[in-house]
């Protein structure tokens, strides 16, 4: 298929998504819209981790840390000075924290940039480590971020966190950022820089021998991925309207890792599909955890059941289908038209 046709089809797909959102905004209830919003944010987070781990092979467990950075920076920028005055009851906020203000888009970008800055600072020492050690060290970093958030009440309001964060993150913002993330990561992965990332994942030694500055490229991938993790965290803060240090534990990273592994390490399509399916399942299983009443009947909720199901699912995927839904395969328009033609051919025959 011609490249121009594909560009047209991609633009049409985005337009269809836009129309769907416009329809959804008017016709779906608040709960359904919330799920759609979470899908967009989870896809952003999954894509960013997939770039780091799936494409570049850097086993990072620090996603929750970068999300926290993005969430806090964005929240501080969009909360009004009056709100912040009220919120900071442990200790008064620093002046610069109270006065800081920015429009939502700028605040989200700032959240992403702050996360990227942390990624550079953390990456320079840590990316020299291999596989599992890198995982544990980045996990340690995320925990340190959490402890810092608790112990810096003049910036983060300590353990209480923020409430009443303005809910700017509507369907259009979330999906807009989602499409932007998708575009950047697709372009990146399809370019020769993307090939270099994959080379590092496959064989670091050979990549060095091919003149690849492995450390620099790792840092690049890690920083870009963390930028989008920060963006995801920023959107999530505005979407949920509440953040506190307890929210950014390892469970959050686990959920993102779960989506990436289920979709397929190194498959963008997989991350999107798994992002949709798992977000819906996560919300759907929430029902199991809450008490239910059918007329006179009352069913007790089973707390913990959701994570039992998900951890079990992750184990099963790793054991029986390690490549996830998609392996390393990607969606392709050619593939669609071929299907279409085959069908048409059969009908004609």
């Amino acid at each position: 298929m011609h490249a121009k046709t594909k560009t047209m089809l991609n633009l049409m797909a985005v337009a269809v998504l836009g129309l769907f959102l416009w329809w959804a905004d008017d016709n779906l209830d608040g709960y359904q819209i919330q799920i759609l919003n979470l899908i967009a944010v989870n896809i952003i987070l999954a894509l960013s981790l997939n770039l780091i781990y799936g494409f570049t092979g850097l086993f990072s467990l620090g996603h929750a840390g970068f999300m926290a950075v993005g969430a806090y920076v964005c929240s501080v920028l969009i909360l009004s000075p009056e709100q912040k005055e009220m919120l900071f009851i442990l200790e008064p906020a620093f002046d610069w924290v109270r006065e800081a203000q920015a429009p939502f888009f700028v605040a989200v970008v700032a959240g992403g940039l702050a996360a990227a800055l942390f990624a550079v600072l953390v990456g320079i020492p840590l990316l020299r480590l291999g596989d599992d050690y890198l995982g544990m060290a980045t996990l340690g970093f995320a925990e340190i971020i959490r402890v810092l958030a608790i112990n810096a009440p003049r910036v983060t309001n300590g353990a209480l966190g923020f409430k009443g964060i303005p809910d700017y993150a509507n369907l259009y913002w979330n999906f807009g950022w989602c499409v932007l993330t998708l575009y950047v990561i697709i372009r990146l992965v399809a370019s020769n820089s993307g090939n270099v990332f994959k080379a590092i994942r496959d064989d670091e030694t050979a990549a060095k021998a091919m003149g690849v500055d492995v450390f620099r490229q790792k840092l690049l991938s890690f920083t870009i991925g963390s930028f989008f993790a920060g963006v995801g965290g920023a959107l999530l803060a505005s979407l949920l309207a509440t953040i506190d240090p307890k929210m950014f534990t390892f469970v959050l990273t686990f959920n993102v890792l779960m989506i990436v592994v289920t979709g397929g390490l190194g498959s963008i399509t997989g991350s999107i599909l798994a992002g949709i399916v798992i977000t819906i399942l996560l919300e759907w299983l929430r029902i199991v955890e809450n008490p239910l009443t059918f007329g006179d009947w009352e069913l007790q909720g089973i707390p913990g059941m959701r994570m039992v199901v998900f951890s079990l699912a992750l184990i099963c995927i790793i054991l029986f289908r390690r490549e996830g839904f998609m392996g390393k395969r990607e969606f392709n328009w050619d593939w669609v038209t071929r299907r279409f033609r085959n069908k048409a051919g059969r009908h004609a025959g």
Binding site: F59, D131, D132, L257, M307, I315, I318
Partner: peptide, 10 residues
Amino acid sequence: LISAIGVSFF
């Protein structure tokens, strides 16, 4: 390691 993380949560 991912399997181990799954078992831990499980």
